[in-house]
Amino acid sequence: MTRGMSDSIARQDPFGLSGVRDHQEYARALARLVEQGRRERCVSLLSESEAYVVAELLGQYAQLDPTSELNQLAATLASRLYSRLGV
């Protein structure tokens, strides 16, 4: 593969999630990204209102199946957003 092609692929999948095979592996990959994100410098990407909406949607999704790995991850992310928002 040429350098240009690998750069293009990296831009299309900057978080390395394209190779996952199933929901469990996807949930584990996302959980690793959450842990990585805790160590990275914080940058504001959303307004306070947008962050609140995202937290609400993640919380609602998490309640659909509380035992699912993806739903548990959604609950964790919602909780972190609420905490940062001071809610």
Rank of each mutant, 00 (worst) to 15 (best):
G19A: 15
D22I: 00
V43T: 11
S8P: 01
G86E: 03
R11Q: 07
R21N: 05
N71R: 11
R28D: 14
Y52E: 13
L81G: 04
A29N: 09
M1T: 00
A10E: 02
R11N: 02
M5F: 05
E25I: 00
A78S: 14
E50S: 09
A75S: 13
V43I: 07
A31E: 15
A78R: 09
L33N: 14
L30V: 08
V34W: 10
T67S: 13
L57C: 10
L85I: 03
E25P: 03
A29P: 06
F15T: 15
D7A: 04
A31F: 08
S49R: 12
E69K: 09
D13V: 01
L46K: 07
A55M: 04
P66C: 10
E25M: 03
S18Q: 06
R39K: 15
S83N: 08
G37S: 10
E40V: 05
L30T: 10
E50V: 04
S18R: 15
G37A: 11
P66T: 12
V54G: 06
Q12G: 15
T2E: 00
E40F: 03
E25N: 02
T67L: 05
E56D: 14
L77V: 14
D22F: 01
M1L: 05
E48A: 11
R39A: 14
L58T: 11
R84C: 01
S8D: 00
L73Y: 05
S8K: 01
R3N: 01
L46C: 11
R38Y: 04
V34I: 06
L81N: 02
A78G: 07
T76V: 05
G86T: 06
E56N: 12
R41K: 10
R28G: 00
A74E: 04
R41W: 06
L45E: 12
F15G: 02
L57R: 14
Q72P: 05
L85F: 03
S8E: 00
S6W: 09
A29D: 05
V43A: 12
S8C: 06
G16Y: 13
V20Y: 10
S47G: 15
R41N: 11
G19T: 05
Y61W: 04
P66Q: 12
P66N: 12
L17T: 02
Q72L: 02
A62K: 04
T67D: 14
S6V: 13
A62N: 08
R84K: 13
S44N: 05
L30M: 13
R28H: 06
E35C: 08
R28A: 03
T67W: 02
G16C: 13
E40H: 06
A51H: 04
T67H: 09
A10I: 01
A10V: 01
L33C: 09
Y52D: 11
V34R: 14
Q24N: 15
E50W: 02
L64P: 01
S6M: 14
R38F: 04
V54R: 14
A31V: 03
Y52C: 10
V20F: 11
D22Q: 05
R32H: 10
Y52L: 12
S79F: 07
S18C: 00
V34Y: 11
G86N: 10
S8G: 09
S44F: 02
S68G: 15
G4I: 03
V34C: 07
